[in-house]
């Protein structure tokens, strides 16, 4: 019975909540138990935002992720804040374009993805979050890549179908990123 507790954190506007939503919908499609909990309030207008996602084979207890198995840090304050809370043996994903330090913990697996740079290079500068998501899925395996397009269709309206393809592409870039 696997449970993955995920914490995604960054600046407001980086798409932290959206990333969590995509993972949650993918979990829903796979018939998993799950919860998605955003931080809310004035901090959402440009301050730090974070989002707790739990994907599990058993009913979810507390939806609050205070000790993540998977931490994705999209900015330095987020890494500073949550690095120590990550469980032993957990995985920390770092957007290395925006965070110029390494993970200090030695008892976790650290992944460095220059997501913001990769997104800029690919011509969709707003989708660093989706690149991070691709890498998370690859390494943490809380959901699979199969059927990702359908999962995205829950969160991206049909009117913006072209966005769906671009988001999918961003996820794939992250998924295939080796570095």
């Amino acid at each position: 019975m696997a449970t993955t507790q995920i914490l995604i954190a960054g600046f407001g506007g980086q798409g932290v909540l959206f990333t969590g939503k995509c993972i949650a919908y993918k979990g829903l499609d796979e018939g998993k138990q799950l919860s998605w909990l955003p931080s809310y309030g004035p901090e959402m207008r440009g301050g730090t935002a974070n989002c707790s996602v739990i994907i599990s084979d058993t009913p979810v207890g507390s939806p609050i992720v205070s000790t993540p198995d998977v931490l994705t840090a999209m900015n330095l304050p987020s890494l500073d804040k949550y690095e120590d809370a990550t469980v032993k043996g957990g995985k920390i994903f770092v957007d290395s374009t925006l965070i110029d330090r390494k993970v200090k913990r030695t008892d976790v697996d650290a992944y460095y993805i220059p997501a913001t740079k990769l997104a800029n290079d690919a011509g969709f500068p707003n989708l660093a979050n989706m690149i991070m998501m691709g890498k998370m899925i690859k390494e943490a395996k809380m959901v699979s890549m199969d059927g990702m397009k359908e999962a995205l269709s829950h969160v991206i309206s049909a009117k913006r179908a072209e966005m769906l393809e671009i988001n999918l592409k961003a996820i794939e870039i992250g998924y295939n990123y080796e570095g």
Binding site: K21, L28, L34, S35, W36, Y40, V60, I64
Partner: peptide
Amino acid sequence: DGTLGQMMEP
């Protein structure tokens, strides 16, 4: 409460 209001679940 705020948590239950803001959280998403199936």
